[in-house]
Design a protein around this nucleic acid. Sequence first.
RNA 1: GGUCGCGUGGCCGAGUGGUUAGGCAGAGGUCUGCAAAACCUUGUACAGCGGUUCAAAUCCGCUCGCGACCUCCA
Length: 491
Amino acid sequence: MNQELFFYNSLSRKKEKFIPLNPPFVGMYVCGPTVYGEPHLGHARPYITFDVVFRYLTHLGYKVRYVRNITDVGHLTDEVEGTGEDRIQRKARLEKLEPMEVAQMYANSFQEKYDQLNILHPSIEPRASGHIYEQIAMIEKIIANGFAYVVNGSVYFDVIKYSKSNSYGELSGRVIEELIAGAGNERRVLEGQEEKRNKEDFALWKKASPEHIMHWPSPWSEGFPGWHIECSAMSTKYLGETFDIHGGGMDLLFPHHESEIAQSKGACGKPPVRYWIHNNMVTVNGQKMGKSLDNFITLEQLFTGTLLKQAYSPMTVRFYILQAHYRSTLDFSNEALQAAEKAYKRLTESYDLIGKLKTSASSTSDIKVLRQKCYDALNDDLNTAIVISHLFEAGRIINSVYAGTETITADDLKELKNLFDVFLFEILGMRYEKSAASGEDVSQLMELLLSLRAEAKAKKDFALSDKIRAELLKLNYAIKDEKDGTSWGRN
RNA sequence: GGUCGCGUGGCCGAGUGGUUAGGCAGAGGUCUGCAAAACCUUGUACAGCGGUUCAAAUCCGCUCGCGACCUCCA
């Protein structure tokens, strides 16, 4: 905690020094997925980004309560001719499954991908469907405070009234007058629009229509919660009325997060969040990867190589995401993934060499300065790309020592290993993928082959030694002749 | 139409006014029986035009191009 950490706060649009409300405790809420579809590459970005935030804060000694929800209700869809049908319900109807069965299926799928990407489990992973009571209670408070009204069993947030005493738009930079006048062009027609007092108002509770099968009792109607209330209710329940960090994708800034602020203030009279942190989008040919644009690639496809030039391992994907700063757009391409794959392999191969290095009385490079440089990069709004560049510098030093062009002390060697262990594995959350095959059998067989090859080489039977090398390569084992012996690894 | 942001060398991608980001790819070299790897060296990069400054990729203005949000979306 002796590090001075700065985050870019979307609320102030500035980098701000991070000071928790109640140190050493930190409350962090991240908008989790709506489980109605397969996780795609775009989803990986926020969960990896905030995983690193979680890991780093923990590393610094903070006691972090990290809440990431699963939205398995709510979120009206307007995809089905304005029927106001719940997204999960729609999917369920199409797949002829119980709605909660669909939600569970995709929640499992997300969980599996989180694990593969080495994303730590949050402290609490609440489901919206399990917090209907809390959402209703919050809506009641908002009504009691006069910021919401009931029409035909539905409840709407009164944005105009709220904005008289509060600034609706403080997060997204929206100006209420422009919301009213603006856009205009292709605003889609949502069901129940005519019930609202103002176009800008949004639903807190919707009365279920007869064909709507996901619904719960409430003081106003059999119905379901509105688009944004679940996050407000669950974050308040587990983190309090005001908490430290709220994260999510930039596309949630408006209206989702703006409305969360309004709801929380409308209910509790306090700003809910001190630091709003938003990650940028993954793009394809410069355009956002998204469900509605149908240009997304699922993580399953990525990991198995379906529809792609090749498969990319979860760690390749994680590394690729961490090589960019989280607030920049990141363009997807095979070339970019391939570059990331090679780059990470290079780094782990350097790491593997650490145990083989010979130490000297002095070091030719300043190792200790690298550690603070890595901290500096993380402290400056979580610049993982810069951390990685320093790790490459460390890798270069390792390789040079191994090649004999540089020297290192025993102390610095420890420091070097620690640098990788702490920054690459613990904080960036990369999983160590050993380049050599594990398994005693294989390595014993390999030693046998290599000794036979060494004999052939000694007899200058290069035809045979090259054949062994070539055949091994076909089996995906690469061997390298070095000064004192031959090393090998899986490709 | 409104709000916000971006435009960096073949590609991806950092860059807080002055000194090398980094990775991938390419070129040359060292090492090697040959490879591979590694190491060393190597690129007129900052959309365009003005301005501020001793000094700008970095600040300001304009122009062009692209994108995000304004509607479910990470």
